[in-house]
Simulated scan of single mutants.
Amino acid sequence: MSDLEHTAIERLKAASDMSLRLYKQPLVITYSGGKDSDVLLHLAEASGIPFEVLHSLTTADAPQTVYHVRDTFRRLENKGIKCTVDKHVQPYGSRITMWNLIPRKLMPPTRVVRYCCSVLKEGGGKDRFIATGVRWDESSARKKNRGALEVITSKKDNSLILSNDNSEDRRLFESCQLKGKRVVNPIVNWKTDDVLDYIESEHITMNPLYGCGFSRVGYIGCPMAGKAGREAEFAMFPKFKAAYIRAFGRMMEERERRGKTANGMRWGHSGVDVFHWWMEDGVIPGQEVLDGFKEI
């Protein structure tokens, strides 16, 4: 067992013990269907701890991701492990989806305003101790703002972020009286190569999108995928492009209904205009598109 694997398993065991003491319930492994969450899930199984698994439905995941999650949950449920899909059902019965969230927010999701993640991906696991596949290697922001152990509160400045997880830090973390979501990130210090090497050595089945050239697996259209990544996604999944254009159209209608038209000229006046602005593809609002490249 490598040092990285040993440390990750020890973090999971410590978090599991705390979860059982503080919450009287098993640790929750959050599972997206990407490579990091597959490694996290494998480590949880190897650790021997009791755990449950939670998948947050974004409603904009590629079919391959949906099938991969289904296959993984079927395997786990056959072992008696509880698996839950968070469908974001509200107390009054309706569901939040990407397609009704965009008109509600009155703006497209962006790298800066990532309401899509906060609502559709990170909202699950309330009143539970959760484990995630967050890694520092993914971005400078995560290196700066995430830790091995976290208590996340509604006010970021009041949250507790511990980069180390030695005995002293664990005691501080467990005794913390802050009201918030407790999180452990077992592979936070792993590099991407560490993840890929572990997947190969342990023969972990990956999301088939990686075999199609994808370097990351998020929801289709995620701004964090970059311009080239999103262009490739929409070329492969054109129906998602059409769904975004419809949602942006409803967003503009809702803005007009509320009298919020200040950004209309920046974004254009239609769902197609907003889509081009969002993709940063240089198409001017209202500009004609050549035959063969007309919008859906």
Results as ranks from 00 to 15, higher is better:
Glu45Leu: 15
Asn78Tyr: 13
Lys144Tyr: 13
Phe275Asp: 00
Asn207Ile: 10
Ser201Cys: 09
Arg114Thr: 06
Phe237Leu: 02
Thr153Ala: 10
Ser139Tyr: 15
Ala242Arg: 05
Thr110Phe: 09
Thr97Leu: 07
Thr97Arg: 03
Leu178Tyr: 00
Cys222Met: 05
Arg266Phe: 15
Met18Asp: 14
Ile220Ser: 06
Thr72Gln: 08
Val28Glu: 02
Leu101Glu: 02
Val274Asp: 11
Glu10Tyr: 04
Val274Cys: 14
Met265Cys: 06
Met1Ile: 06
Arg111Cys: 07
Met98Thr: 13
Gly292Asp: 09
Arg11Gln: 07
Trp136Phe: 07
Gly264Phe: 11
Phe237Arg: 02
Gly147Cys: 07
Lys13His: 04
Met206Leu: 14
Tyr210Asn: 08
Thr59Gln: 02
Ile152Thr: 11
Val283Pro: 02
Ala148Trp: 07
Met252Thr: 12
Pro50Met: 12
Ile187Lys: 00
Thr59His: 09
Met252Gly: 04
Glu295Phe: 13
His55Gln: 09
Val272Ser: 01
Met279Ser: 12
Asp3Gln: 10
Leu162Met: 10
Arg170His: 05
Gly221Ile: 03
Asn145Asp: 15
Asp17His: 12
Met251Asp: 08
Tyr67Trp: 10
Glu138Tyr: 10
Val217His: 05
Ala141Phe: 13
Leu22Asn: 05
Thr153Gly: 04
Ile9Trp: 04
Glu77Arg: 15
Ala225Glu: 14
Asp194Met: 00
Leu172His: 10
Ser139Cys: 09
Val66Met: 08
Ile284Lys: 15
Lys13Tyr: 00
Val119Gly: 04
Leu172Gly: 06
Gly48Met: 06
Leu209Val: 03
Glu231Lys: 07
